[in-house]
Simulated scan of single mutants.
Amino acid sequence: MTKQWVAPRPGASEVLESIDVDVRPPGPGEVTITVRAAGMNPADTKHTRAADSSAYPIAIGYEVAGVVSAMGPDTEIASGGGAVGDEVLAFRVSGGWTEELTVPAADVFAKPASLDFPQAANLLLAGTTAADVIRVTRASGRDTVLLHGASGAVGVSVLQQLRPLGVRVIGTASERGADTVRRYGGEWIAYGDGLEARVRDLAPDGIDVAIDCVGTDEAIDVSLALVADRSRIVTIAAQQRAAAEGVPMVGGAQPESKAFRDSVRQRLIDLAAAGQLEVPVARTFPLAQAREAAELLESGHPGGKLALVP
C-alpha cells in the first residue's frame, strides 16, 4: 500500500484527501518509481473543479522524480536503458502526489545529475508549455517579445528557452519578481495601470510577439493593442478571451500541443543537464502536507515552484 492524494469530488485544495492505494507491479512497457519528489502545478487542482461527478475520484499530480524500484519485462525507459535503482523523472503521468506509482516507460527519462529531485519533478510541465508557446508564436532572433507573467514558472522557462535565439524579451511582473525576470535575461516592466504606454516607451519600434502566462484582461488587451498579427499572440490561461478575440490558446489536452510537448521532453532534459535550463524551487513540503501546499499554490504567489517530498 502507498499514500496517494486524490480529489474525491469537485473542488480545489479543500477537497483533497490522502488515501491508501495498492501499487500494481509493472507489466511490459511499464516502470514503478519510488517517488522522491512530486511536482506541483496550477493545473493539478484546476482540473479537479469540473462538475462531472463521474470522473471522481481524481488522482493528483502530473510529474515526479524518483528512483526506479521495478521494471516490466523487456522494457526500457524513454531515454534508453534503465534499471532498478536509476534516478529518473516522469511526465506526463497521473497520480504523482504519492509515495510510489507505476507508469508507462515511454514517459520516464533519466534524471540529469545537475537537478535535485524537487527541481527534476518540476521541469517538464512548465518547460513543455513554454516550448509550446514559442512554437505557436514563431518567436525568433529579431523579434521583440512581450511576456506577461515572466517571473512565474512558465515565464521563467520561456525566458531561458528564448535566450539562445537572441530574442529581446520584455517581461511583466510585480516588483518582487523583477530580479527573477532580469536574472533569466528579460527586461522587467511592472504590470498594472499604464502598461501599454510603458511598453511603447520601452519598445518604440514595436512588439512582434505577445505571450500571456497569466490570463488577465490587461494581458490580452495590451497584447491586442501592441501586436498587429493576432496569430503571434498566445495565451495559456485566458480561454474565453482567446475565443472571443481570435487569439491562439494552447493547452496540454489539445492533440497538437500534446504531441509537440511529448516530443520535446528529452530536448528540455538535455538543456537542463547542460545547465541551460534551471528550475527555481521556492519551497518543499512533506507529502502529508499536500493540502497546505496546494493552498499556497492556489494563492498565485508561491514565489517559485513547489514540490511534495514523501
Rank of each mutant, 00 (worst) to 15 (best):
I77N: 04
R283I: 02
E187I: 09
P118H: 10
E187C: 05
L123Q: 03
V35R: 00
D229M: 04
L89I: 09
A51L: 14
I207F: 08
Q266I: 08
A38P: 00
R198H: 05
T75R: 02
I19V: 15
R182D: 14
H301P: 00
R24I: 14
V247M: 02
V167W: 02
A113L: 12
F91P: 02
G215H: 01
L296R: 01
G192V: 02
P8F: 10
V309A: 07
T102I: 05
G61W: 02
T144N: 12
R9H: 14
Q4K: 03
P302I: 09
D212T: 07
A225S: 15
I33D: 05
A244F: 00
I211L: 13
L125P: 03
P112S: 12
E99M: 05
V281L: 10
L115R: 04
A253S: 14
L306C: 11
P26I: 03
I233K: 01
R291M: 09
T48V: 13
R267W: 11
K111G: 07
A210M: 11
N122Q: 10
V15I: 13
A225E: 11
S223Y: 06
G177A: 11
R138D: 15
D143N: 14
E100I: 04
D193V: 13
A55E: 15
A294V: 11
A203R: 00
